[in-house]
Design a protein around this nucleic acid. Structure first.
Lengths: 341, 341
DNA sequence: AAATTTTTGATTTACGTACATCAAAAATGG
DNA sequence: CCATTTTTGATGTACGTAAATCAAAAATTT
């Protein structure tokens, strides 16, 4: 049987009330007594029954998710996953609030973060825009003892407790190797379609991609990045233009969202041009393109996993508990047409 | 606030005792009353507080993991993950017992399964050997209301509640496409190294692999399968022999465990022969081989995820609760040298 | 209508922890 | 050594559910 508070009291030779004072860091315990109790806790290997404690406290975990507005498929999916999580709120003792903030709007994000200070909140998860002001706001929350988890996009050098997202440099490197190997030694040009170089994850993906391309595939030349702003129409015209102007393009890496336009442009040149294409984010559109051969590989991060992981981590941090690191590592999914879920 | 049993009682106009009788299917309630209570439960949307219930019952979940003996890296890792789980047993209210059974020994597996019948057990997870006798034994457990989860290897047409493992046909198909694409149109022979064709997952991987090879890569010819029995020395000699006898081999797919021998054989012919290699299971050895370029891709199933998922599912089934399907889907990990964890 | 059986209600204890209160004991200051 | 403050103990209630007991009421049988 697991030891209980009673066992601590017996082992330490003190009363239940004193044990309680130590466990919940209430005042009125002498240093010697406190140490005696803490020693007993260690000796008998007591672990607090979090379920019972939560029951007694009537505890709920008020969590806040700060996500960018915008209608690209990925963010839409992310919001929908957070919404799914709210449906499980009852059984998980969570109380999830979603705050929407315009994408890439640093002051708005900072305001949203600061608005949470002092509130009774068990954790904050945010899709971070990588700016010093945001980092400072996050650090303010952290120093206010609120667990903070970055979601999808991380925040450089901040004090956030955890990052629930993929390693974007590794993602870019992986894309480069896939594209390079799939092209099997052919020589030609590669064009990269990004959303915006202002976003950290896009920058990192490009960084990883460029590095591997330079190191390992000298026969492939990287063209200047096309910035599609995650806007389908813009992406379409940029890609179409690039393809018609440069007949040497044999590969495309799309590292942002909004692949609808890219796919349309590809279909337009489909039978004549033979292109190898790697894109990010599995959506209805990219999935169909993978199946019909327009796209060769899709790299993905599972938004559902990210949200659930963020929740588990915030709860654990709020309780001062350990997380299973391996369980919370968000993996980069590589989808070919054969292993689609 | 979440509705409680008291709210049901009030809503149904009955006493707490009656609600309890209905909720825990105790006898002594008239049909009309039972229906009245059940209607109230639905109306106010009552959901049992599992944590409180477990506390009151002093419930623990006695779980049994049946895993094959054998010293290949994968099974070793699997056992170690189950062991990790036993360390968390306290906080998770589980009580995990590991039963080891000789690999591929159908009677022993059946005996182990039947020994569990009638015991007070909340769930059984087993690495299934795909045989009719095993299926029958599993079905006996299921009809005895014990949740059964297959782990790593599934059981055809059985009544098991859940399979915690990857789709092996998809894995084989993925391997074929990776190998085919990496070879970039070259023509030549492909050799497949398996453990044993008696195991379902190996058969399925081969099936998927062969299908895609035939459909999509006509320039690549599949040689007869080498059965290495997951034994390093045997694998080494088989592969060395094959490579020296056939200079047309340009690709290798190793779908079983025990890749140490394969890697040794590859290193022996390393500078002269240019081979594209896809293997299963990320271990110390395959990881090193991936990094140094001996191997081009590693397909993997995360044993830790499988074990944790199996535990969650067994607990949920024991409580008659729903599982988050998406969370419990075990994914096929594709590792290139760039996205290693 | 009485006797019997079945169903329902009322009440209590328990699970492990949190939290509050009041009294008693010990330590500290003068 | 007394007065004061600090520390500790004893005790009770609560959280939401399970499980048991015994009495009361209702339904069924005779």
């Amino acid at each position: 049987m697991r030891p209980t508070v009673h066992d601590i009291a017996a082992a330490a030779g003190v009363s239940l009330a004193t044990v309680d004072r130590v466990l919940n860091q209430r005042p009125g315990v002498r240093m010697v007594t406190r140490e005696k109790v803490e020693a007993a806790i260690r000796e008998i290997g007591y672990i607090r029954d979090v379920a019972a404690a939560n029951l007694a406290k009537g505890r709920v975990y008020p969590l806040v998710f700060i996500v960018p507005t915008g209608d690209n498929s990925f963010m839409h999916g992310l919001r929908s996953e957070v919404h799914q999580a709210t449906l499980r709120a009852g059984i998980e003792r969570t109380e999830i609030r979603i705050v929407e903030v315009p994408a890439f709007d640093v002051p708005a994000l900072v305001a949203a973060l600061d608005a949470l200070r002092g509130q009774d909140i068990s954790g904050v998860a945010l899709v971070a825009t990588d700016a010093p002001e945001v980092r400072a706001a996050v650090d303010r929350l952290v120093s206010g003892r609120i667990p903070v988890v970055t979601l999808v996009s991380d925040l450089t050098d901040s004090a956030r407790h955890h990052y629930a997202g993929i390693d974007n440099i590794a993602a870019g490197r992986t894309a480069a190797r896939l594209l390079g190997r799939f092209l099997g030694g052919r020589k030609g040009d590669i064009t990269v379609l990004a959303g915006s170089m202002l976003v950290r994850d896009h920058r990192e993906r490009l960084q990883g991609f460029s590095a591997v391309m330079a190191e390992e595939f000298p026969g492939l030349r990287l063209l200047p990045v096309l910035e599609g702003r995650d806007d389908p129409e813009r992406a379409r015209s940029l890609v179409s233009k690039a393809l018609s102007e440069n007949r040497d393009i044999i590969g495309i890496y799309s590292l942002g969202a909004g692949n609808r336009g890219l796919i349309a442009a590809l279909k337009a040149v489909r039978p004549e041009r033979e292109l190898t294409v790697v894109v990010h984010e599995l959506t209805r559109h990219t999935r169909a393109a993978l199946v019909d051969g327009t796209v060769d590989a899709v790299l993905n991060q599972d938004a559902g996993h990210e949200v659930r992981s963020a929740i588990r981590v915030m709860k654990a941090k709020a309780d001062g508990q350990a997380v299973i690191a391996d369980q919370e590592r968000i993996r980069l999914d590589i989808f070919l047409k054969d292993n689609l879920p």
